[in-house]
Nucleic acid binder design. Structure first.
Length: 559
RNA sequence: GCGCCCAUAGCUCAGCUGGAUAGAGCACCAGACUACGAAUCUGGGGGCCGAAGGUUCGAAUCCUUCUGGGCGCGCCA
Protein backbone atom coordinates (compact mmCIF):
# COMPACT_ATOMS: atom_id res chain seq x y z
CA UNK A 1 0.00 0.00 0.00
CA UNK A 2 1.39 3.35 -1.01
CA UNK A 3 1.59 5.99 1.64
CA UNK A 4 0.84 9.47 0.47
CA UNK A 5 2.18 11.62 3.25
CA UNK A 6 -0.28 14.27 4.22
CA UNK A 7 0.72 17.89 4.03
CA UNK A 8 0.45 17.92 7.78
CA UNK A 9 2.99 15.10 8.03
CA UNK A 10 5.32 16.78 5.59
CA UNK A 11 5.20 20.14 7.32
CA UNK A 12 5.81 18.50 10.65
CA UNK A 13 8.88 16.82 9.27
CA UNK A 14 10.24 20.05 7.79
CA UNK A 15 9.63 21.85 11.03
CA UNK A 16 11.43 19.14 12.97
CA UNK A 17 14.37 19.56 10.61
CA UNK A 18 14.40 23.27 11.29
CA UNK A 19 14.41 22.68 15.02
CA UNK A 20 17.21 20.18 14.73
CA UNK A 21 19.27 22.62 12.67
CA UNK A 22 18.75 25.33 15.27
CA UNK A 23 19.79 23.01 18.06
CA UNK A 24 22.80 21.69 16.15
CA UNK A 25 23.97 25.19 15.33
CA UNK A 26 23.30 26.21 18.91
CA UNK A 27 20.85 28.93 17.90
CA UNK A 28 18.57 27.37 20.46
CA UNK A 29 20.32 26.13 23.55
CA UNK A 30 18.22 23.11 24.47
CA UNK A 31 17.61 19.47 23.76
CA UNK A 32 15.22 18.33 21.06
CA UNK A 33 11.56 18.55 22.07
CA UNK A 34 9.63 15.27 22.29
CA UNK A 35 6.62 16.50 20.36
CA UNK A 36 6.30 18.81 17.43
CA UNK A 37 2.81 19.52 16.23
CA UNK A 38 1.46 21.14 13.15
CA UNK A 39 -2.29 21.40 13.17
CA UNK A 40 -4.99 22.65 10.85
CA UNK A 41 -6.19 26.15 11.55
CA UNK A 42 -9.79 27.03 12.10
CA UNK A 43 -9.55 30.35 10.35
CA UNK A 44 -8.10 30.73 6.82
CA UNK A 45 -6.53 34.03 7.80
CA UNK A 46 -4.20 32.01 10.00
CA UNK A 47 -3.07 30.02 7.00
CA UNK A 48 -3.75 26.36 6.30
CA UNK A 49 -1.70 24.91 9.11
CA UNK A 50 -0.13 26.38 12.20
CA UNK A 51 2.35 25.35 14.82
CA UNK A 52 2.55 26.46 18.41
CA UNK A 53 6.04 25.06 18.77
CA UNK A 54 7.69 28.39 19.51
CA UNK A 55 5.43 28.84 22.52
CA UNK A 56 6.04 25.31 23.65
CA UNK A 57 9.79 25.86 23.51
CA UNK A 58 9.78 29.23 25.25
CA UNK A 59 10.66 28.01 28.71
CA UNK A 60 12.90 25.25 27.40
CA UNK A 61 15.02 27.57 25.26
CA UNK A 62 14.65 30.56 27.56
CA UNK A 63 13.68 32.95 24.81
CA UNK A 64 10.44 34.67 24.02
CA UNK A 65 8.18 32.76 21.63
CA UNK A 66 8.15 35.26 18.79
CA UNK A 67 11.91 35.33 18.79
CA UNK A 68 12.06 31.55 18.64
CA UNK A 69 9.55 31.54 15.82
CA UNK A 70 11.76 33.98 13.95
CA UNK A 71 14.83 31.78 14.40
CA UNK A 72 12.92 28.70 13.26
CA UNK A 73 11.52 30.63 10.34
CA UNK A 74 15.02 31.47 9.12
CA UNK A 75 16.15 27.86 9.31
CA UNK A 76 13.00 26.42 7.80
CA UNK A 77 13.91 25.02 4.40
CA UNK A 78 10.90 24.26 2.31
CA UNK A 79 12.75 21.69 0.25
CA UNK A 80 9.51 20.29 -1.15
CA UNK A 81 8.28 23.72 -2.20
CA UNK A 82 5.01 23.32 -0.35
CA UNK A 83 4.56 26.79 0.97
CA UNK A 84 3.60 30.13 -0.36
CA UNK A 85 4.67 31.82 2.86
CA UNK A 86 5.02 31.54 6.60
CA UNK A 87 3.74 34.18 8.96
CA UNK A 88 4.61 34.65 12.58
CA UNK A 89 1.47 35.76 14.33
CA UNK A 90 -0.08 36.42 17.69
CA UNK A 91 1.94 35.28 20.67
CA UNK A 92 4.28 33.23 18.45
CA UNK A 93 2.29 31.00 16.12
CA UNK A 94 3.93 29.97 12.91
CA UNK A 95 1.22 30.07 10.25
CA UNK A 96 1.84 28.05 7.12
CA UNK A 97 0.20 29.08 3.87
CA UNK A 98 0.27 26.19 1.43
CA UNK A 99 0.63 26.87 -2.28
CA UNK A 100 -2.57 26.49 -4.22
CA UNK A 101 -0.89 24.12 -6.70
CA UNK A 102 -0.04 21.76 -3.86
CA UNK A 103 -3.67 21.58 -2.87
CA UNK A 104 -5.02 21.06 -6.34
CA UNK A 105 -2.21 18.58 -7.03
CA UNK A 106 -3.46 16.40 -4.22
CA UNK A 107 -6.68 15.93 -6.14
CA UNK A 108 -4.79 13.61 -8.46
CA UNK A 109 -4.99 11.15 -5.61
CA UNK A 110 -8.73 10.86 -6.10
CA UNK A 111 -7.98 8.96 -9.30
CA UNK A 112 -7.24 6.04 -7.02
CA UNK A 113 -11.00 6.00 -6.52
CA UNK A 114 -11.96 3.63 -3.75
CA UNK A 115 -8.37 3.68 -2.47
CA UNK A 116 -8.34 7.45 -1.99
CA UNK A 117 -7.85 7.99 1.70
CA UNK A 118 -5.90 4.79 2.24
CA UNK A 119 -3.01 5.15 4.63
CA UNK A 120 -0.11 3.03 5.73
CA UNK A 121 -0.59 4.07 9.33
CA UNK A 122 -1.11 0.49 10.42
CA UNK A 123 1.76 -0.74 8.28
CA UNK A 124 -0.01 -4.04 7.83
CA UNK A 125 -0.13 -4.77 11.55
CA UNK A 126 -2.85 -7.13 12.64
CA UNK A 127 -5.72 -5.45 14.41
CA UNK A 128 -8.66 -7.27 15.86
CA UNK A 129 -11.95 -5.60 16.61
CA UNK A 130 -14.24 -7.50 18.92
CA UNK A 131 -17.76 -6.16 19.12
CA UNK A 132 -21.41 -6.96 19.75
CA UNK A 133 -20.56 -10.21 21.59
CA UNK A 134 -24.07 -10.43 22.98
CA UNK A 135 -25.21 -13.58 24.78
CA UNK A 136 -27.23 -15.79 22.46
CA UNK A 137 -30.14 -15.64 24.87
CA UNK A 138 -32.34 -13.38 22.78
CA UNK A 139 -32.48 -11.37 19.60
CA UNK A 140 -30.34 -8.27 19.25
CA UNK A 141 -32.09 -5.12 20.32
CA UNK A 142 -31.49 -1.48 19.62
CA UNK A 143 -28.93 -1.24 22.37
CA UNK A 144 -26.71 -3.73 20.59
CA UNK A 145 -27.15 -1.93 17.31
CA UNK A 146 -25.06 1.05 18.28
CA UNK A 147 -22.15 -1.10 19.35
CA UNK A 148 -22.50 -3.09 16.16
CA UNK A 149 -22.20 -0.03 13.96
CA UNK A 150 -19.41 1.55 15.98
CA UNK A 151 -17.35 -1.63 15.90
CA UNK A 152 -18.02 -2.20 12.23
CA UNK A 153 -17.02 1.32 11.24
CA UNK A 154 -13.91 1.30 13.42
CA UNK A 155 -12.89 -1.87 11.64
CA UNK A 156 -13.49 -0.20 8.28
CA UNK A 157 -11.46 2.83 9.29
CA UNK A 158 -8.56 0.74 10.50
CA UNK A 159 -8.57 -1.26 7.32
CA UNK A 160 -8.39 1.94 5.29
CA UNK A 161 -5.56 3.05 7.55
CA UNK A 162 -3.41 0.12 6.56
CA UNK A 163 -4.17 -2.42 9.26
CA UNK A 164 -4.98 -6.00 8.55
CA UNK A 165 -8.31 -6.13 10.30
CA UNK A 166 -10.13 -9.07 11.79
CA UNK A 167 -13.67 -8.75 13.10
CA UNK A 168 -14.76 -11.08 15.82
CA UNK A 169 -17.84 -11.80 17.88
CA UNK A 170 -17.26 -13.48 21.23
CA UNK A 171 -20.12 -15.81 21.99
CA UNK A 172 -20.81 -15.98 25.70
CA UNK A 173 -22.26 -19.43 25.42
CA UNK A 174 -21.12 -20.71 28.79
CA UNK A 175 -22.42 -20.01 32.26
CA UNK A 176 -25.65 -19.60 34.13
CA UNK A 177 -27.40 -17.44 31.58
CA UNK A 178 -27.27 -20.24 29.06
CA UNK A 179 -28.62 -22.75 31.51
CA UNK A 180 -31.34 -20.27 32.27
CA UNK A 181 -32.18 -20.06 28.59
CA UNK A 182 -32.53 -23.82 28.26
CA UNK A 183 -34.66 -23.93 31.37
CA UNK A 184 -36.92 -21.17 30.08
CA UNK A 185 -37.53 -22.94 26.80
CA UNK A 186 -38.08 -26.25 28.53
CA UNK A 187 -40.70 -24.79 30.84
CA UNK A 188 -42.54 -23.32 27.88
CA UNK A 189 -42.30 -26.67 26.16
CA UNK A 190 -43.94 -28.34 29.14
CA UNK A 191 -46.54 -25.62 29.15
CA UNK A 192 -47.38 -26.33 25.51
CA UNK A 193 -47.88 -29.94 26.47
CA UNK A 194 -50.36 -28.85 29.07
CA UNK A 195 -48.12 -29.28 32.07
CA UNK A 196 -48.56 -26.45 34.49
CA UNK A 197 -45.37 -25.29 36.07
CA UNK A 198 -44.25 -22.08 37.68
CA UNK A 199 -42.43 -19.83 35.28
CA UNK A 200 -39.86 -18.09 37.48
CA UNK A 201 -39.27 -14.38 37.18
CA UNK A 202 -35.58 -14.83 36.43
CA UNK A 203 -36.36 -16.86 33.34
CA UNK A 204 -36.51 -15.21 29.94
CA UNK A 205 -40.00 -13.90 29.42
CA UNK A 206 -39.96 -13.01 25.73
CA UNK A 207 -42.38 -14.58 23.31
CA UNK A 208 -39.44 -15.86 21.27
CA UNK A 209 -38.90 -18.38 24.06
CA UNK A 210 -42.30 -19.89 23.42
CA UNK A 211 -41.58 -19.84 19.68
CA UNK A 212 -38.46 -21.92 20.28
CA UNK A 213 -40.41 -24.35 22.45
CA UNK A 214 -42.98 -24.65 19.71
CA UNK A 215 -40.27 -25.41 17.14
CA UNK A 216 -38.87 -28.17 19.30
CA UNK A 217 -42.31 -29.56 19.88
CA UNK A 218 -43.01 -29.52 16.18
CA UNK A 219 -39.72 -31.21 15.28
CA UNK A 220 -39.45 -33.71 18.05
CA UNK A 221 -42.87 -34.01 19.60
CA UNK A 222 -43.15 -34.93 23.25
CA UNK A 223 -40.00 -37.07 23.17
CA UNK A 224 -38.41 -34.96 25.89
CA UNK A 225 -41.27 -35.31 28.28
CA UNK A 226 -39.94 -38.35 30.05
CA UNK A 227 -36.40 -37.05 30.56
CA UNK A 228 -35.01 -35.50 33.69
CA UNK A 229 -34.17 -31.80 33.74
CA UNK A 230 -30.46 -32.66 33.95
CA UNK A 231 -30.71 -34.55 30.69
CA UNK A 232 -33.02 -32.29 28.81
CA UNK A 233 -31.95 -28.77 29.66
CA UNK A 234 -28.55 -29.00 27.92
CA UNK A 235 -30.34 -30.16 24.79
CA UNK A 236 -32.77 -27.27 24.96
CA UNK A 237 -29.93 -24.86 25.66
CA UNK A 238 -27.96 -25.97 22.63
CA UNK A 239 -30.90 -25.89 20.32
CA UNK A 240 -32.03 -22.48 21.51
CA UNK A 241 -28.60 -20.88 21.52
CA UNK A 242 -27.87 -22.07 18.00
CA UNK A 243 -31.20 -20.94 16.74
CA UNK A 244 -30.91 -17.54 18.39
CA UNK A 245 -27.35 -17.10 17.14
CA UNK A 246 -28.51 -17.81 13.61
CA UNK A 247 -31.11 -15.09 14.02
CA UNK A 248 -28.49 -12.70 15.37
CA UNK A 249 -26.25 -13.33 12.40
CA UNK A 250 -29.10 -12.74 10.04
CA UNK A 251 -30.09 -9.47 11.68
CA UNK A 252 -26.51 -8.28 11.65
CA UNK A 253 -26.16 -9.11 8.00
CA UNK A 254 -29.24 -7.07 7.23
CA UNK A 255 -27.64 -4.26 9.17
CA UNK A 256 -24.52 -4.51 7.06
CA UNK A 257 -22.40 -6.05 9.79
CA UNK A 258 -20.43 -9.21 9.20
CA UNK A 259 -17.70 -10.97 11.14
CA UNK A 260 -14.63 -12.92 10.18
CA UNK A 261 -15.15 -15.22 13.10
CA UNK A 262 -17.55 -16.11 15.86
CA UNK A 263 -15.49 -17.23 18.82
CA UNK A 264 -17.15 -19.53 21.31
CA UNK A 265 -16.48 -19.26 25.02
CA UNK A 266 -17.29 -22.93 25.36
CA UNK A 267 -14.56 -23.74 22.86
CA UNK A 268 -12.09 -22.13 25.23
CA UNK A 269 -13.08 -24.56 27.95
CA UNK A 270 -13.15 -27.46 25.54
CA UNK A 271 -9.54 -26.80 24.56
CA UNK A 272 -8.49 -26.39 28.18
CA UNK A 273 -7.40 -22.86 27.37
CA UNK A 274 -8.78 -21.59 30.66
CA UNK A 275 -6.92 -24.01 32.87
CA UNK A 276 -3.75 -23.50 30.85
CA UNK A 277 -4.10 -19.79 31.31
CA UNK A 278 -4.47 -20.20 35.05
CA UNK A 279 -1.27 -22.23 35.05
CA UNK A 280 0.53 -19.45 33.25
CA UNK A 281 -0.68 -16.82 35.67
CA UNK A 282 0.12 -19.06 38.58
CA UNK A 283 3.67 -19.74 37.37
CA UNK A 284 4.26 -16.03 37.06
CA UNK A 285 3.15 -15.64 40.64
CA UNK A 286 0.10 -13.58 39.89
CA UNK A 287 -2.42 -15.84 41.58
CA UNK A 288 -2.95 -17.03 45.13
CA UNK A 289 -5.38 -19.26 46.96
CA UNK A 290 -7.72 -18.40 49.75
CA UNK A 291 -9.28 -21.67 50.75
CA UNK A 292 -10.86 -23.07 47.62
CA UNK A 293 -10.93 -19.69 45.96
CA UNK A 294 -8.24 -18.59 43.55
CA UNK A 295 -7.45 -14.92 43.11
CA UNK A 296 -5.62 -12.99 40.44
CA UNK A 297 -3.48 -10.14 41.75
CA UNK A 298 -4.80 -7.46 39.45
CA UNK A 299 -3.79 -4.88 42.05
CA UNK A 300 -0.21 -5.44 40.88
CA UNK A 301 -1.27 -3.59 37.75
CA UNK A 302 -3.35 -0.80 39.20
CA UNK A 303 -6.73 -2.43 39.77
CA UNK A 304 -8.42 -1.40 43.01
CA UNK A 305 -8.89 -4.94 44.30
CA UNK A 306 -7.87 -8.45 43.35
CA UNK A 307 -10.31 -10.56 41.36
CA UNK A 308 -11.53 -14.10 41.67
CA UNK A 309 -10.63 -16.42 38.81
CA UNK A 310 -11.72 -19.72 40.34
CA UNK A 311 -14.80 -19.92 42.46
CA UNK A 312 -15.19 -21.79 45.71
CA UNK A 313 -17.07 -24.37 43.65
CA UNK A 314 -14.03 -24.95 41.48
CA UNK A 315 -15.56 -23.31 38.43
CA UNK A 316 -13.56 -20.61 36.67
CA UNK A 317 -15.23 -17.20 36.55
CA UNK A 318 -16.32 -15.37 33.45
CA UNK A 319 -13.27 -13.18 33.93
CA UNK A 320 -10.93 -16.18 33.82
CA UNK A 321 -12.38 -17.23 30.48
CA UNK A 322 -12.16 -13.70 29.18
CA UNK A 323 -8.46 -13.55 30.05
CA UNK A 324 -7.94 -16.83 28.26
CA UNK A 325 -9.76 -15.38 25.30
CA UNK A 326 -7.51 -12.33 25.25
CA UNK A 327 -4.48 -14.54 25.63
CA UNK A 328 -5.72 -16.36 22.58
CA UNK A 329 -6.00 -13.07 20.71
CA UNK A 330 -2.42 -12.25 21.60
CA UNK A 331 -1.26 -15.70 20.54
CA UNK A 332 -2.90 -15.19 17.20
CA UNK A 333 -0.55 -12.27 16.67
CA UNK A 334 -2.90 -9.35 16.99
CA UNK A 335 -0.88 -6.32 17.98
CA UNK A 336 -3.85 -3.98 18.26
CA UNK A 337 -6.71 -5.49 20.17
CA UNK A 338 -9.81 -3.37 20.25
CA UNK A 339 -12.79 -4.27 22.39
CA UNK A 340 -16.05 -2.43 21.93
CA UNK A 341 -18.02 -2.56 25.16
CA UNK A 342 -21.19 -1.14 26.56
CA UNK A 343 -20.31 1.75 28.83
CA UNK A 344 -21.83 -0.06 31.79
CA UNK A 345 -18.80 -2.36 31.68
CA UNK A 346 -16.31 0.45 32.24
CA UNK A 347 -15.45 -0.87 35.70
CA UNK A 348 -14.09 -3.95 34.00
CA UNK A 349 -11.32 -2.07 32.19
CA UNK A 350 -8.64 -2.04 34.92
CA UNK A 351 -8.80 -5.80 35.44
CA UNK A 352 -8.66 -6.58 31.72
CA UNK A 353 -5.77 -4.20 31.34
CA UNK A 354 -4.10 -5.96 34.27
CA UNK A 355 -4.57 -9.27 32.49
CA UNK A 356 -2.88 -8.04 29.33
CA UNK A 357 0.05 -6.77 31.33
CA UNK A 358 0.32 -9.91 33.40
CA UNK A 359 0.62 -11.83 30.15
CA UNK A 360 3.67 -9.73 29.40
CA UNK A 361 2.23 -7.23 26.97
CA UNK A 362 2.11 -3.49 26.92
CA UNK A 363 -1.19 -2.18 28.18
CA UNK A 364 -1.55 -0.25 24.93
CA UNK A 365 -1.98 -3.53 23.10
CA UNK A 366 -5.58 -3.43 24.29
CA UNK A 367 -7.84 -0.51 23.60
CA UNK A 368 -11.37 -0.36 24.91
CA UNK A 369 -14.00 1.65 23.11
CA UNK A 370 -16.99 2.36 25.30
CA UNK A 371 -20.39 2.73 23.74
CA UNK A 372 -23.08 4.36 25.81
CA UNK A 373 -26.37 2.60 25.92
CA UNK A 374 -29.17 3.98 23.82
CA UNK A 375 -32.26 5.54 25.32
CA UNK A 376 -34.94 4.31 23.03
CA UNK A 377 -37.95 6.56 22.80
CA UNK A 378 -41.25 6.41 21.06
CA UNK A 379 -43.01 9.72 20.66
CA UNK A 380 -40.78 11.22 23.34
CA UNK A 381 -41.50 8.51 25.89
CA UNK A 382 -38.77 6.14 27.02
CA UNK A 383 -39.24 2.45 26.31
CA UNK A 384 -37.91 0.31 29.12
CA UNK A 385 -35.87 -2.51 27.78
CA UNK A 386 -34.61 -5.71 29.25
CA UNK A 387 -33.80 -8.93 27.51
CA UNK A 388 -35.05 -10.96 30.41
CA UNK A 389 -38.41 -9.24 30.70
CA UNK A 390 -38.85 -9.70 26.98
CA UNK A 391 -39.69 -6.06 26.58
CA UNK A 392 -37.48 -4.66 23.88
CA UNK A 393 -37.43 -3.34 20.37
CA UNK A 394 -35.32 -5.56 18.21
CA UNK A 395 -32.69 -4.47 15.75
CA UNK A 396 -34.78 -6.02 13.03
CA UNK A 397 -37.79 -3.92 13.93
CA UNK A 398 -35.69 -0.76 13.79
CA UNK A 399 -34.34 -1.76 10.40
CA UNK A 400 -37.80 -2.44 9.06
CA UNK A 401 -39.05 0.83 10.44
CA UNK A 402 -36.40 3.38 9.50
CA UNK A 403 -33.97 1.62 7.20
CA UNK A 404 -30.33 0.67 7.37
CA UNK A 405 -28.84 3.92 6.14
CA UNK A 406 -30.69 6.23 8.51
CA UNK A 407 -30.21 3.86 11.43
CA UNK A 408 -26.47 3.50 10.93
CA UNK A 409 -25.94 7.18 10.33
CA UNK A 410 -27.90 8.14 13.42
CA UNK A 411 -25.71 5.96 15.60
CA UNK A 412 -22.60 7.62 14.22
CA UNK A 413 -23.55 11.23 14.72
CA UNK A 414 -22.27 11.45 18.27
CA UNK A 415 -19.21 10.37 20.14
CA UNK A 416 -19.80 6.74 20.96
CA UNK A 417 -19.33 7.36 24.68
CA UNK A 418 -22.03 9.98 24.91
CA UNK A 419 -25.65 9.18 25.55
CA UNK A 420 -27.93 8.86 22.60
CA UNK A 421 -31.64 9.40 22.51
CA UNK A 422 -33.14 7.43 19.68
CA UNK A 423 -36.75 8.31 19.05
CA UNK A 424 -38.32 5.87 16.62
CA UNK A 425 -41.23 8.09 15.70
CA UNK A 426 -38.96 11.06 15.23
CA UNK A 427 -36.47 9.16 13.12
CA UNK A 428 -39.30 7.95 10.95
CA UNK A 429 -41.20 11.23 10.74
CA UNK A 430 -38.15 13.28 9.95
CA UNK A 431 -36.78 10.81 7.51
CA UNK A 432 -36.80 13.30 4.65
CA UNK A 433 -34.79 15.85 6.59
CA UNK A 434 -32.52 13.34 8.22
CA UNK A 435 -28.85 14.34 8.05
CA UNK A 436 -28.02 11.19 6.14
CA UNK A 437 -30.09 12.39 3.20
CA UNK A 438 -28.30 15.71 3.18
CA UNK A 439 -25.07 13.88 2.48
CA UNK A 440 -26.53 11.30 0.14
CA UNK A 441 -28.22 14.07 -1.80
CA UNK A 442 -24.87 15.75 -2.39
CA UNK A 443 -23.63 12.53 -3.92
CA UNK A 444 -26.75 12.05 -6.02
CA UNK A 445 -26.54 15.65 -7.17
CA UNK A 446 -23.02 15.18 -8.45
CA UNK A 447 -24.15 12.08 -10.32
CA UNK A 448 -26.92 14.15 -11.79
CA UNK A 449 -24.48 16.84 -12.89
CA UNK A 450 -22.36 14.21 -14.59
CA UNK A 451 -25.37 12.80 -16.41
CA UNK A 452 -26.21 16.30 -17.59
CA UNK A 453 -22.61 16.90 -18.66
CA UNK A 454 -22.60 13.76 -20.78
CA UNK A 455 -25.87 14.84 -22.36
CA UNK A 456 -24.20 18.08 -23.35
CA UNK A 457 -21.26 16.32 -24.93
CA UNK A 458 -18.71 16.28 -22.14
CA UNK A 459 -16.78 13.32 -20.87
CA UNK A 460 -16.35 12.96 -17.18
CA UNK A 461 -12.82 14.39 -16.97
CA UNK A 462 -9.70 12.88 -15.47
CA UNK A 463 -7.18 14.84 -13.47
CA UNK A 464 -5.03 15.49 -16.52
CA UNK A 465 -7.97 16.73 -18.57
CA UNK A 466 -8.61 19.56 -16.15
CA UNK A 467 -6.76 22.82 -15.72
CA UNK A 468 -7.26 23.31 -12.00
CA UNK A 469 -5.60 26.71 -12.09
CA UNK A 470 -8.97 27.89 -13.39
CA UNK A 471 -10.54 27.17 -10.03
CA UNK A 472 -10.17 30.61 -8.54
CA UNK A 473 -13.22 31.00 -6.35
CA UNK A 474 -12.78 30.81 -2.57
CA UNK A 475 -15.64 28.31 -2.51
CA UNK A 476 -13.72 26.12 -4.91
CA UNK A 477 -10.53 26.25 -2.90
CA UNK A 478 -12.50 25.39 0.23
CA UNK A 479 -13.80 22.25 -1.49
CA UNK A 480 -10.36 21.40 -2.88
CA UNK A 481 -8.83 21.61 0.58
CA UNK A 482 -11.62 19.65 2.16
CA UNK A 483 -11.15 16.84 -0.36
CA UNK A 484 -7.38 16.92 0.02
CA UNK A 485 -7.67 16.61 3.77
CA UNK A 486 -9.72 13.45 3.64
CA UNK A 487 -6.69 11.25 4.46
CA UNK A 488 -5.99 13.39 7.50
CA UNK A 489 -9.55 12.85 8.68
CA UNK A 490 -9.12 9.11 8.32
CA UNK A 491 -5.85 9.28 10.21
CA UNK A 492 -7.43 11.22 13.06
CA UNK A 493 -10.41 8.89 13.26
CA UNK A 494 -8.14 5.83 13.22
CA UNK A 495 -5.83 7.09 15.94
CA UNK A 496 -8.67 8.17 18.20
CA UNK A 497 -10.98 5.29 17.23
CA UNK A 498 -13.72 7.85 16.70
CA UNK A 499 -16.09 7.08 13.85
CA UNK A 500 -18.20 10.16 14.50
CA UNK A 501 -15.48 12.31 13.00
CA UNK A 502 -16.49 10.97 9.62
CA UNK A 503 -20.10 12.07 9.86
CA UNK A 504 -19.02 15.54 10.90
CA UNK A 505 -16.57 15.71 8.06
CA UNK A 506 -19.20 14.51 5.60
CA UNK A 507 -21.64 17.09 6.76
CA UNK A 508 -19.05 19.84 6.35
CA UNK A 509 -18.06 18.93 2.84
CA UNK A 510 -21.67 18.37 1.79
CA UNK A 511 -22.45 21.82 3.06
CA UNK A 512 -19.57 23.32 1.05
CA UNK A 513 -20.76 21.51 -2.03
CA UNK A 514 -24.46 22.43 -1.74
CA UNK A 515 -23.57 26.03 -1.13
CA UNK A 516 -21.25 26.12 -4.13
CA UNK A 517 -23.84 24.40 -6.28
CA UNK A 518 -26.46 26.99 -5.49
CA UNK A 519 -24.13 29.86 -6.22
CA UNK A 520 -22.21 28.73 -9.30
CA UNK A 521 -22.84 26.65 -12.38
CA UNK A 522 -20.60 23.66 -12.86
CA UNK A 523 -21.52 23.41 -16.53
CA UNK A 524 -21.38 26.74 -18.30
CA UNK A 525 -20.52 28.23 -21.73
CA UNK A 526 -16.83 28.23 -20.71
CA UNK A 527 -15.69 24.77 -21.77
CA UNK A 528 -12.33 24.69 -19.99
CA UNK A 529 -13.81 26.01 -16.78
CA UNK A 530 -16.63 23.47 -17.00
CA UNK A 531 -14.13 20.65 -17.35
CA UNK A 532 -12.20 21.88 -14.33
CA UNK A 533 -15.34 22.13 -12.28
CA UNK A 534 -16.55 18.75 -13.44
CA UNK A 535 -13.31 17.29 -12.21
CA UNK A 536 -13.68 19.10 -8.89
CA UNK A 537 -17.13 17.69 -8.22
CA UNK A 538 -16.05 14.29 -9.43
CA UNK A 539 -13.24 14.35 -6.87
CA UNK A 540 -15.77 15.34 -4.22
CA UNK A 541 -17.92 12.43 -5.32
CA UNK A 542 -15.05 10.06 -4.59
CA UNK A 543 -14.88 11.43 -1.07
CA UNK A 544 -18.63 11.09 -0.54
CA UNK A 545 -18.63 7.56 -1.84
CA UNK A 546 -15.60 6.47 0.14
CA UNK A 547 -16.72 8.03 3.39
CA UNK A 548 -20.25 6.69 3.10
CA UNK A 549 -18.67 3.36 2.29
CA UNK A 550 -16.71 3.46 5.52
CA UNK A 551 -19.92 4.20 7.39
CA UNK A 552 -21.71 1.35 5.65
CA UNK A 553 -24.25 3.74 4.19
CA UNK A 554 -25.19 3.62 0.52
CA UNK A 555 -24.21 6.38 -1.89
CA UNK A 556 -27.21 6.55 -4.22
CA UNK A 557 -26.89 7.92 -7.76
CA UNK A 558 -30.51 9.05 -7.74
CA UNK A 559 -32.89 9.72 -4.91
C1' G B 1 -19.53 5.39 51.05
C1' C B 2 -15.59 4.60 46.97
C1' G B 3 -14.43 4.77 41.58
C1' C B 4 -15.32 6.17 36.31
C1' C B 5 -18.01 9.30 32.71
C1' C B 6 -20.96 13.61 31.63
C1' A B 7 -22.63 19.14 32.35
C1' U B 8 -21.21 24.00 26.03
C1' A B 9 -27.12 28.34 22.19
C1' G B 10 -34.38 27.09 23.60
C1' C B 11 -33.40 21.36 22.11
C1' U B 12 -29.67 17.48 20.40
C1' C B 13 -24.58 17.68 20.20
C1' A B 14 -19.18 18.93 18.03
C1' G B 15 -14.88 21.32 19.66
C1' C B 16 -9.07 17.27 16.38
C1' U B 17 -5.71 15.39 23.46
C1' G B 18 -3.61 23.29 26.13
C1' G B 19 -4.12 27.71 21.33
C1' A B 20 -5.82 32.94 18.26
C1' U B 21 -12.88 36.09 17.96
C1' A B 22 -16.41 28.90 21.24
C1' G B 23 -19.11 25.97 16.24
C1' A B 24 -22.99 22.77 13.64
C1' G B 25 -27.89 20.60 13.11
C1' C B 26 -32.83 21.07 14.63
C1' A B 27 -36.39 24.94 16.23
C1' C B 28 -37.73 30.30 15.39
C1' C B 29 -37.80 34.86 11.95
C1' A B 30 -36.94 36.97 6.91
C1' G B 31 -35.62 35.78 1.84
C1' A B 32 -34.02 32.59 -3.10
C1' C B 33 -36.50 27.88 -8.41
C1' U B 34 -38.75 30.27 -16.65
C1' A B 35 -30.88 28.46 -14.40
C1' C B 36 -26.71 21.50 -13.91
C1' G B 37 -32.44 18.08 -8.92
C1' A B 38 -35.54 23.35 -3.61
C1' A B 39 -34.22 16.24 0.11
C1' U B 40 -30.95 22.61 -1.57
C1' C B 41 -29.26 27.66 -0.63
C1' U B 42 -28.75 33.02 1.67
C1' G B 43 -29.27 36.18 5.97
C1' G B 44 -30.76 36.94 11.34
C1' G B 45 -31.28 36.57 16.65
C1' G B 46 -29.50 33.69 20.26
C1' G B 47 -23.57 31.75 25.33
C1' C B 48 -20.85 33.90 32.66
C1' C B 49 -18.75 26.64 28.26
C1' G B 50 -22.84 23.96 35.75
C1' A B 51 -20.20 27.08 40.28
C1' A B 52 -15.67 28.67 42.82
C1' G B 53 -10.54 28.54 43.20
C1' G B 54 -5.67 26.93 41.05
C1' U B 55 -1.66 25.66 37.23
C1' U B 56 0.82 29.36 32.63
C1' C B 57 2.34 33.30 27.82
C1' G B 58 -2.89 31.07 26.96
C1' A B 59 -8.11 26.83 29.93
C1' A B 60 -14.57 24.64 27.38
C1' U B 61 -10.06 21.37 27.53
C1' C B 62 -5.38 20.06 32.93
C1' C B 63 -5.60 19.97 38.99
C1' U B 64 -8.68 20.67 43.67
C1' U B 65 -13.45 21.50 45.96
C1' C B 66 -18.72 21.98 45.42
C1' U B 67 -23.64 21.32 42.87
C1' G B 68 -26.56 18.35 39.61
C1' G B 69 -27.22 13.79 36.32
C1' G B 70 -25.56 8.65 34.35
C1' C B 71 -22.98 4.17 35.33
C1' G B 72 -20.08 0.76 38.03
C1' C B 73 -18.57 -1.24 42.81
C1' G B 74 -20.70 -10.12 42.58
C1' C B 75 -17.15 -16.31 43.79
C1' C B 76 -23.20 -12.57 37.57
C1' A B 77 -22.15 -12.33 32.40
Amino acid sequence: MIMQLTIQNRLTRLLKNAIKTCVDKNYLKMSLPPFVEVEPTKDPSYGDYASNIAMMLASRAKKNPRHIAQILFEEFHDSEHILERIEIAGPGFMNFFVRKEIWTGLLAETERNHLFGSLSLGDGRKAQVEFVSANPTGPLHIGHARGAVVGDVIANILKMSGYTVFREYYINDAGNQMNNLGMSVWLRYLELLGIKADFPENCYQGSYITDLAREILKNEGDAHLSKTPEEVIPLFTDYSANSILDGIKEDLRAFGVTFDNYFSERALYASNAVSRLLDVLGKKGYTYWEGETRWFKTTDFGDEKDRVVVRRTGEPTYFAADIAYHQNKLERGFTDIIDVWGADHHGYIPRMSAAIQALGHDKNALKIVLVQLVNLLRAGKPIAMSTRSGEFVTLKEVLDEIGKDAARYNFLMRRSDSHLDFDLDLAKKQSTENPVYYVQYAHARICSIERMAIERGYNVPCYHDANLALLKLPEEMAIVKSIARFPEVIEGAAKALEPHRLTFYLNDIASLFHSYYNKHKVISEDKDLSISRLFLVKAAKVVFRNTLGLLGVTAPERM
